[in-house]
Amino acid sequence: MSAQRTRVAILGAGLIGIDLIDKIQRSPYLDCALVAGRTRQTAGLRRAEQLGCATAPHGIRSVLEQAPFGLVFDASNATAGHWAYLEQATDTTLIDLTPARPGLAVVPTVNAQAAASCRHIGLVSCGGQAALPLLHALAALSAPTYIEVAATAASASAGPATRRNLDEYLATTSAAISTLTRVPEVKVLANLSPARPAPPFRVAMTLLADTRGLTAAHVVRTAERAAHEVRQFAPGYQLTSTTVGDGQITAAVEVTAASARLPRHAGNLDLINAAAVLLAEQHTRRHAKDTR
């Protein structure tokens, strides 16, 4: 293992930012060198300090002042892109978790290799992170003509940015699914559940395809294999059902948070953050190899 960890900065100290700190601190490859919020007074920044991180109040300005960083995670609510500043002034790589989800849309087990030469990596939404590993594998198996995804998150696990940007959530998630499965017709539905106790993050998928010649065992095996790969970095990811027949394949997954910093129902946040940190580690290791 390299003795030197990569210096990383986090923009944003909300629920996502704080959980990112925890995941980065557990990583053998990353060093959380700065958490930049918008003002000094946020509870999030105080929490970050308690966790032993240096903090700064001026967002992207603070990051630019304290550069260089090997990687920057954008977990802010910014709709105006921080990427423009970072691209001009630094040679850092940005891992983007903002609601607009710009950058190359990535799901680790599906297209991480495409991120290798990319300096602006966008995480596909949590719904896409949960659905795409299975959809990608099942689409390769069945050449579907239509894909539908219904994601249900616990009320408490959806932050204000997600709530304000549900239209974008649906649009970016369906676009990413369409691109990565090469199925043109995709529909995404999203629910926020008021149930108490809060239920785990749940994503149900349906693919319309020619199912003649597909056995249930084959579909289950394919789905289980995809789920197993995700569990390597997000242990709370579980396949709960699969069906096949009559021109239709269905699968559903539930995701609970395995992180110490998140309530159990916030599997959506745990999954997208785990994906972001995994991509960061892969990037760092690649970079270390290149410069050795």
Binding site: A150, T152, L189, S193, P194, R196, P199, T250, A252
Partner: peptide
């Protein structure tokens, strides 16, 4: 506690 929209 299934809600409308959770037909799955």
């Amino acid at each position: 506690q299934a809600v409308a929209g959770q037909e799955d």
